[in-house]
Simulated scan of single mutants.
Amino acid sequence: MPTDTSDDQILVAALLVAAGRGLRAGGDRPKQYRHIAGRPVLAYALKPFLDEAAITTVAVVIGAGDEMRYADAIADLATDKLVGPTTGGVTRQESVRRGLQALAKSGFRGVVLVHDAARPFVSGALIQRAIAAAVEAPAAIPALPVTDTIKRVDAQGHVEETPARARLVSVQTPQAFEFDRLLAAHDAASAAGQDSFTDDAALMEWAGHRVATFPGDPANVKLTHAEDFVRAQNARSLTVRVGSGYDVHALGPGDHVWLGGIRIPHAQGVIAHSDGDVALHALTDALLGALADGDIGTHFPPSDPQWRGASSDRFLAFAAGRVAERGGLIDHLDITIVCEAPKVGPHRETIRARIAEIAGIRIAQVAIKATTSERLGFTGRGEGLAAFATATVRLPESE
């Protein structure tokens, strides 16, 4: 790792904190590894620091067991500046301290920018402002004017004070520090048992250092809740894709049929390798068609005994997951069920709710229609059921 080579050169490192679990954001993985428009959040956050010429070293603190996720996140990035990663601690404060210690062990001295990986839209201009501010002060943080009125409340939620808004700011990362002073402050806080600082600027204040501010960036948002990811997805450039699906199954002996993930009593059953849910099978194919990702038989071949009698909600959940893995969004699912019996109408809303649950979308994004074939053909003769489905999704343009 580079160190100072001349009196007028200040080396700059970036330390990205990506060790949190991000539970409030939902999903099946820490938020820094969730995808937006086909790329992990961490990849977005890293790239501007890797692209900044003034930064010589980029280090990342990750959670225990996240090594494979981290490797996937950096797979498409230029990694010549990357070191580590370092495994973080239980708290953000401890994770930063471990990252700083790893940098110190490698011989780094200079300015360090500490950035939360959950802020993926940091700009090169903001990074340059952080570096410039660090040259003038031992600690500097990006700040934005507060536009809402702020109230301080007591434990019961009663207002105690309304601070003057003109002197309030909200702060962001990257926060810029003189490396040796920040590490010393962390070590001192650890020795004193002070472990509840929510950002490094607060820790530096505790250590007696004056903290300067510089202009932040409103676009440098932090992804915290599930709706933050929806807004972030909408901000990325996505292309509409439409897929269609069709399925049919013969009726035979039995006392029920499965339609749209719902068990409906009936005088006959369905002859099928799985549970024979024509609605979910057609929807699965529609989603896979929108992805140009084969069909239900490609991923769940009837020749494979493990799918005998399988619940079809697994198939639809798989297809919806493939959309999410590629950074896409499901906009709408539309199904038409063709049969003489059973009657679909009494079960329509239950089916809509179940499909929405399986696909991870709102019920308003699911449409169910049912019709007969006027007693024509195999459905008209009561020999089978059929379903037609259309899926509308949005995918990153690169897809």
Rank of each mutant, 00 (worst) to 15 (best):
Q365N: 05
S373I: 02
A359R: 06
P305Q: 15
L316R: 12
D334K: 14
T336V: 06
F378D: 13
R348Y: 00
L283W: 05
F318S: 04
S303M: 12
R308A: 14
P302E: 07
G345H: 10
V338Q: 07
R314H: 08
W307A: 09
W307L: 00
R308Q: 05
L329V: 02
D331H: 00
L376I: 13
G294L: 07
L287G: 06
G377F: 01
I351A: 02
E349Q: 15
D285I: 13
D277T: 00
G328S: 06
D293R: 05
V278T: 12
G309R: 14
R322M: 09
F318E: 13
L283R: 15
F378E: 01
A370I: 06
G297F: 10
R314V: 11
T336H: 08
Q306R: 15
G377M: 05
D293G: 03
K369R: 15
V323L: 03
L291I: 01
V366L: 12
P342Y: 15
A324F: 08
D275N: 15
A279Y: 05
D334F: 03
H281V: 14
R348M: 08
G276I: 07
D331E: 10
D331I: 01
V323W: 00
D275A: 14
A359C: 11
E340M: 10
T372Q: 07
T336L: 15
A292L: 08
T350V: 15
D293S: 10
Q365W: 04
A286P: 08
I330H: 10
R354K: 05
G360T: 11
I296Y: 03
S303Q: 09
G360V: 05
K343S: 15
F378T: 10
I355Y: 10
A279F: 00
A367F: 05
C339G: 11
A341I: 01
I296G: 14
F378N: 13
G360A: 07
C339Y: 00
L288C: 09
P302V: 12
I361G: 10
A310Q: 13
